[in-house]
Amino acid sequence: MLDTHNLQLDQNGRLRHFLTIEGLNKALLTEILDTADSFAAVAERKVKKVPLCHGKIVVNLFFETSTRTRTTFELAAKRLSADVLNFNASTSATAKGETLLDTLRNLEAMHCDMFIVRHKDSGAAHFFARHAAPNVSILNAGDGRHAHPTQAMLDMLTIRRHKQDFSKLCVAIIGDLLHSRVARSQILALNTLGVEEIRTIAPRTLLPTQIESLGVKVYYNLQQGIKDVDVIIVLRLQKERMAYGLLPSEHEYFRLFGLTEDRLSQAKPDAIIMHPGPLNRGVELSSQVADSNRSVILQQVSNGIAVRMAIIAMALGNTKATS
């Protein structure tokens, strides 16, 4: 069995697929951020396009619904001049009983160059990468609870723009880490980039057992957890979590773990607040916090396009934004 490292990188150590942060080193993550920075200016241009991926076909293969991620991937690919095909799994052959492997084979037969995959099951992106033809790249747009590496990288870009040096940072992640692919990828990326400390803050029902093995400190108390932190990442709380007895109520959650102006005073004065969206105001954080000048939530969305352009371009082997 190919390990993740061999699956993602070619023999020269270049990105072939982008499935998870795991196995990628600091230099490669930094290269992604640098490349994304170089693409950021494209959005300011009158013609928001570079011809780097002209003639390439990129398929958005989403087996799970998404608005923001799919849209920003589509925009990113279009700004690189690629042709984009949106494959909606709910109306596709997969819904009619076709296997995932057959779906992949059929799309490959149309000579597509890249599949951007989102799927409800952990390991789905690895599955596609393992079975993909040699000239096809797989980008993971979220698989189950496992990984959402482009989201993590856009978060890293957002942090770097505000904080520059990762090595001095203390980052707190609040909320449902058990079910969060975003958090898993963020933790891997933050550790690879060498932050000083990562804290996770949630009731035990929303934390994976042995989460400490990922290199984080665990807090069950929000005030203690965000004391003197530089970055606060608030995770989305899905409504269905109440159904399985993981939480008593949204009200109780907000009372204990909701981020409010008052509690924010525990963090460093220049701490930034991030959220992968979509927001539940009054559940994960108050409206005042969401709309405050410390919130960088909308910058995350903009940075998502640049980061996804960088990763698509790197995986398709062409990254010079100046052309």
Binding site: G144, R145, R181, R184, P208, T209, Q210, S213, L214
Partner: peptide, 8 residues
Amino acid sequence: GARLGLPS
């Protein structure tokens, strides 16, 4: 299970 995000 924690790292791969697989239901445990």
